[in-house]
Amino acid sequence: MITLSQRLKKQQDQGVLNNRISVRDRLLARELQELAQVLPTNCLVNHDNVNDLSSFMLIIKPTEGFWQGGSFKFGVNVTEEYNMVPPIVKCLTRLWHPNISEGGEVCLSLLRQHSVDGLGWSPTRRLNDVLWGLLALFTDLLNFDDPLNIEAADMYRTSREEFQKKVNEYVIKYAID
C-alpha cells in the first residue's frame, strides 16, 4: 500500500511538472509569434534548438548611442514557472556599460522578480516587454546614477570621451559580427 501511494504521488508530481511546462510553452508559442511580428530590423531572435522554445538568443544591434555598430547577444532562458517569474537574461557579449556587468549580469527593473515598486516583473509582461527593455538599455533606460558597473559610470562622469573610447574598444574587440 505504501509503495502504491508513493508511486501515485510521484506520478502526480510528475504530472504537475509536465503541466507547468506545457503552460509555459503555450504562453511562449504565442509570445514568440508576437515578438516576431514586432521585432525591429536591428534585432534578431535565434533558437539553437527549434524544439525548445524556452531558450533562445536575442541579438541587438543598436542604431544610435554609445554602442552603435556593435552586435550584442543576450541569452534568454524562460524557466518552467514562467510567467509567474521573469525570464533569466544574460548578456553574452562583453561590453562596457553602466547597467550591464562585464560578466553579463543585466540590471533591468522589469527582470527583477521581487520588487516593491511597480517596475519589477509582473505576469502581465511579455517577451515583447523584455525586448524593448533591453533595447532601451542602449538608449532611454541607460542609467548612470544607479550603476552595476560602477567603474563605467564613474568614467562617464569624469570624461564622456574616455567613456566612448572604452566602449568602442570593447565593441571592436568583442561585439563585431
Binding site: 509567474m84 517569474v85 522578480q113 521581487h114 520588487s115 511597480g118 519589477g120 509582473s122 505576469p123 502581465t124
Partner: peptide
C-alpha cells in the same frame, strides 16, 4: 487560479 499563484510572490494587482 492565476491570481492565487501571483499573490504568493507579490500581493499587488499586476495591472
Amino acid at each position: 487560479c492565476c491570481m492565487s499563484l501571483w499573490v504568493k510572490q507579490n500581493n499587488r494587482c499586476p495591472l
